[in-house]
């Protein structure tokens, strides 16, 4: 029977933290790319593009992230497609993130005055050009703060990947707890590490928000 010192516990948790960070980055970057595509569809004013996008967002915002993970992990495997925890977690978190980012960014796009659309249309720009050269550069400025704020939700969301067996920070905590029987210490440390990851982002998002209010 080995004796687990505090240092060994911390070292193992920190080792697992890299997977939390990596999964968060995948979800955030992937979700950002998918979200941007969806944003174009959602604000296109073309009905048959908008309606499916709306339904997509409604599904991913209106169902628990845990259910989405289960659907990808247990569900898709039944169709004969091999799904690893990596793939299921990466995919589910990416789609979940994209739905929220699309909605956040749509709000920012809609905050741009109508005159900007009309002016760019009057110089014969098409929809994609309008977005690319006129609307998005302005919308991006107001989008930064809520986007950084949402990244905190993504990091916290990755904790659910532990349930489908993805070994990240929360799963490592559970495994170490099973070996050491020191749940109070282990989960307090896990929470502390999450806090160290999330708090700077929350703080930065808040600061950006304040700056923007002054600029207005």
């Amino acid at each position: 029977m080995s004796d687990f010192s505090l240092w060994i516990i911390v070292k193992n948790l920190l080792w697992a933290t890299q997977w939390t960070i990596l999964l968060s980055l995948i979800a955030f970057v992937g979700g950002g790319i998918v979200g941007l595509v969806l944003l174009f569809l959602r604000t296109s004013q073309v009905k048959w593009l908008e309606v499916p996008t709306k339904l997509y967002i409604e599904f991913f915002q209106g169902t628990p992230l845990l259910m989405q993970l289960f659907l990808f992990f247990f569900g898709v495997a039944l169709f004969g497609i091999e799904v690893s925890p990596w793939m299921a977690a990466g995919l589910a978190l990416t789609l979940w993130t994209s739905a929220f980012l699309t909605e956040i960014w749509r709000g920012c796009v809609e905050a741009i005055p109508k005159g900007q659309w009309e002016a760019s249309a009057s110089v014969a720009m098409n929809y994609v050009e309008q977005m690319r050269y006129v609307i998005l550069p302005q919308a991006m400025r107001i989008a930064i703060a809520p986007t950084v704020g949402f990244s905190v939700q993504v990091i916290k969301g990755t904790a659910l990947a532990s349930i489908i067996g993805f070994v990240e920070l929360t799963k490592a905590g559970t495994m170490i707890n099973n070996a050491t029987f020191r749940p109070f210490l282990v989960y307090a440390l896990v929470a502390l590490i999450y806090f160290c990851l999330c708090f700077p982002l929350s703080w930065y998002a808040k600061r950006l928000e304040g700056k923007l209010n002054v600029a207005r």
Partner: peptide, 21 residues
């Protein structure tokens, strides 16, 4: 700040597994 910057599942585990200690 503590609650908003940690995942719900960790809070739940802390309460359910940690507090009995």
């Amino acid at each position: 700040e503590l609650i908003r910057n940690t995942p719900f599942i960790v809070q739940l585990f802390f309460i359910f597994f940690g507090l009995p200690a």
